[in-house]
């Protein structure tokens, strides 16, 4: 017997907000994954739209490489507005 694959579930809680990962489940195909996601994750109006994605299709960054992946952003203070020294009397900027 083959096991049902794992799916990741993303839910938009209301229009105007993005889909957010809310969990995972097993299902034989995408249609069943959608139905199960509705039954499990939206029993109390928690969503208006559901995405399901096979977990095997997700490529994730490696947390062990977080240093080199995210550190370079740290020393680029010039990407932030407070880096620029402007006179106090300057308004609306």
């Amino acid at each position: 017997m083959k096991n049902w694959p794992l799916w990741e579930v993303f839910i938009r809680s209301k229009n105007g907000l993005e889909h957010r990962h809310c969990g995972s489940l097993h299902a034989a195909d995408a249609q069943m994954a959608l139905q199960n996601a509705r039954d499990v994750y939206t029993r109390r109006m928690e969503g208006v739209s559901i995405w399901v994605v096979p977990s095997s299709q997700i490529t994730a960054s490696n947390p062990e490489l977080n240093g080199e992946t995210f550190e370079p952003a740290m020393d680029k203070a010039y990407r932030h507005p407070t880096f620029y020294e402007l006179p106090d009397e300057l308004k609306h900027m």
């Binding site: 017997m1 083959k2 049902w4 034989a28 195909d29 069943m32």
Partner: peptide
Amino acid sequence: GAWVRDAAVAYAEKQE
């Protein structure tokens, strides 16, 4: 429930 799980997989494969 094993036959239900098997049937669902068979159906998914057929659709694909």
